[in-house]
């Protein structure tokens, strides 16, 4: 019995080393996909925006450059934008998936390797340690992990390479609850007007309302990952999304701020309950290069890439 049990242990070690390699290689592949291949729904949206500005030379130049750049990136498998962001991973970990806490270290390693292989721009700057050149925070916070525990035996990984320019224009509002939904919606419009073209429009805007100061920002960021054009399951929230989208596009910003053409490709809202004394509103922007890629890994090391 003892011997058999030992043998099983050895077998188990080999099993995890196989899946560890799969996870690492998949994560590297996802970082490459994210940085070099714009999701098709976003590209399609840029095409539609282009059709509307055929008569405006300035806007047409900008949107054509964007589309040419996207094509070049896909053809050459090179990053479409030099700013490949602060790397983050959104993980849905199944109850029966064989690895849990070790995932973080594997994904850190993948980030370091992808930085050389893709390549990604080394973006982690520490005030005291400088830039280590590998996109890994020496203090352990980056790559950043958003974790969710789910049923089943699979692991879903989404890699996000979101640029810093559009992160700089994010806004958090801790509004007075008396301002209501109207105040929350106006806060989004104000944030966009304030941002102008600084974060590379056409933007996608994620809005988180409720929860708390960090929760609303988190909800806002995750709203960026919904399929483009998808509306909230609650019809009332969906209504607000449509209205906000229409309102945002009244502002004459346009692609790269040329003053004509569509400014916002989509607006998505995530709503949570709030504290009676608080009305937190988070507004997160993505530049036109809305970059993310996902895959689902099974315990037998099979990998299914999600097509966007």
């Amino acid at each position: 019995m003892f011997f058999r049990s030992q043998k099983e242990d050895t077998q188990k070690v080999d099993d995890t080393s196989g899946i560890k390699t799969t996870i690492k290689e998949t994560a590297i592949a996802l970082l490459r996909l994210s940085a070099t291949s714009l999701p098709h729904d976003v590209q399609q949206s840029m095409q539609e925006i282009k059709q509307e500005v055929l008569n405006h030379e300035g806007a047409l130049l900008q949107i054509s450059n964007i589309l040419d750049d996207v094509e070049l990136a896909r053809e050459t498998s090179a990053p479409m934008c030099q700013d490949t962001g602060i790397v983050s991973f959104i993980l849905s970990v199944g109850d029966q998936f064989p690895l849990k806490s070790e995932l973080k270290e594997i994904l850190r390693e993948a980030t370091g390797e992808a930085t050389k292989l893709v390549p990604l721009r080394p973006n982690t700057v520490d005030f005291f340690e400088g830039n280590p050149g590998n996109n890994i925070d020496p203090r352990g916070h980056i790559p950043y992990f958003y974790l969710d525990l789910v049923s089943g035996d699979k692991l879903k990984i989404t890699a996000m390479t979101k640029g810093g320019g559009s992160s700089n224009i994010a806004k958090l509002g801790m509004l007075k609850p008396g301002l209501g939904l109207k105040g929350a919606m106006q806060f989004v419009i104000d944030a966009l007007a304030e941002a102008g073209p600084a974060g590379c429009p056409p933007y996608r805007i994620g809005v988180g309302i409720g929860g708390g100061e960090d929760i609303c920002m988190n909800l806002a960021k995750k709203a960026l990952l919904r399929p483009l054009g998808e509306r909230h399951a609650d019809e009332r929230v969906a209504n607000l999304e449509n209205s906000l989208m229409e309102a945002c596009n009244v502002l004459p910003i346009g692609p790269m701020g040329v003053g004509a053409g569509q400014t916002v490709m989509d607006v998505n809202i995530n709503l949570a309950s709030r504290h009676p004394a608080s009305l937190p509103v988070g507004v997160v922007f993505s530049c036109w290069a809305l970059r993310h890629a996902s895959a689902i890994i099974s315990p037998d090391s099979s990998v299914e890439f999600v097509d966007y």
Binding site: D69, M80, C81, Q82, D83, M256, C287
Partner: peptide, 30 residues
């Protein structure tokens, strides 16, 4: 003059040669 934001490969296409680099060790690649 504004270059299209994010159009990093179009920009790289216009670069024919990297002539010099300074302050790399001090400031890092970006």
């Amino acid at each position: 003059g504004m270059f299209t934001g994010g159009a990093a490969l179009l920009a790289a296409k216009g670069v024919k040669e990297v002539l010099e680099v300074h302050w790399y060790d001090l400031l890092g690649m970006p």
